[in-house]
């Protein structure tokens, strides 16, 4: 009897998923265009309000690091979950499964392709930043921690996006929820005009739970290698990671009850 090839993570499937990601207009507009646009606009506003010109480098670098979190939020939290919900609505994962591509293999292929595209977008963002902005040169530990944090944050966004799409299974609902989360993260992260210091106490309490806040508020300190208390930032990753993990667990449980094989 003929044994068909068991389909695993492969270059052809990663390329397929990469085409899938790049074929989504959301990620180009919100994940590449918008952060670069925001970088120019917000830096100009912040710098124009500075009286001490020696702080331009500090301000530009802080804005640059904060805005960079829009890339994983738009590209993965929004872009991925929207594509995933559309696929679920159409029954595409089920169709792929019937061709022997198991859902966990699809997810692995997607994570890899999302991270490849995310890295390309961040590199492009850095090239624009280095060419057009007056940025502070980082210390080695600063750049390593930045890469580590952005990767962890992106992974959490992936888990959260996947859980929301799997739970809701509808494009319209998923789009609505992730768009809302995107703005919540931006507002509480201090990217929409209100800085952490200007927030009310309840708002600050929420902001403390979000990793984006630390990218915006504190990452300059880490970037330049100054002494920094990592505990609150670590707690925010643990908190968002736990919430996302629980949601994913519920989503997968619900999915299995429905008879869909994961």
């Amino acid at each position: 009897m003929k044994e068909n090839k068991r389909k695993t993570v492969s270059l052809s499937m990663i390329t397929y998923e990469l085409r899938n990601v790049t074929g989504n207009p959301f990620v180009h507009i919100f994940g590449i265009g918008l952060p670069i646009f925001f970088l120019f606009i917000i830096t100009r506003i912040v710098v124009s309000n500075l009286q001490d010109t020696s702080l331009i480098k500090t301000a530009s670098t802080s804005v640059f690091l904060g805005i960079s979190t829009i890339i994983p939020m738009a590209m993965i939290l929004m872009g991925y979950s929207v594509i995933q919900s559309q696929d679920l609505e159409k029954g595409i994962p089920e169709r792929l499964q019937l061709f022997g591509i198991k859902q966990h293999i699809t997810i692995c292929n997607r994570i890899i392709s999302e991270l490849i595209f995310l890295s390309a977008a961040i590199i492009l963002y850095f090239i624009v930043g280095i060419i057009f902005m007056d940025l502070q040169t980082p210390v080695i530990s600063g750049i390593i921690i930045y890469i580590f944090c952005i990767l962890i944050f992106s992974t959490i966004c992936f888990i959260l996006g996947h859980a929301i799409a799997t739970l809701l299974r509808k494009f319209s609902l998923t789009y609505c929820i992730v768009m809302l989360l995107y703005f919540v993260f931006m507002i509480f992260g201090g990217m929409m005009g209100i800085t952490y210091e200007n927030m009310s106490a309840p708002m600050q309490a929420v902001a403390k739970l979000l990793p984006v806040t630390y990218f915006n508020k504190d990452f300059y300190t880490i970037w330049t290698g100054k002494s920094y208390n990592f505990v609150p930032m670590l707690q925010s990753y643990l908190f968002l990671g736990a919430i996302s993990g629980v949601l994913l667990f519920i989503a997968l449980k619900k999915d299995r009850r429905k008879g869909n094989l994961s």
């Binding site: 052809s12 397929y16 899938n20 696929d87």
Partner: peptide
Amino acid sequence: NEYTDTMPTRYIMEAILQ
């Protein structure tokens, strides 16, 4: 049977059939 609409069918075919 539905497939992604982000790419031409040849790429879908090649990926699925590896």
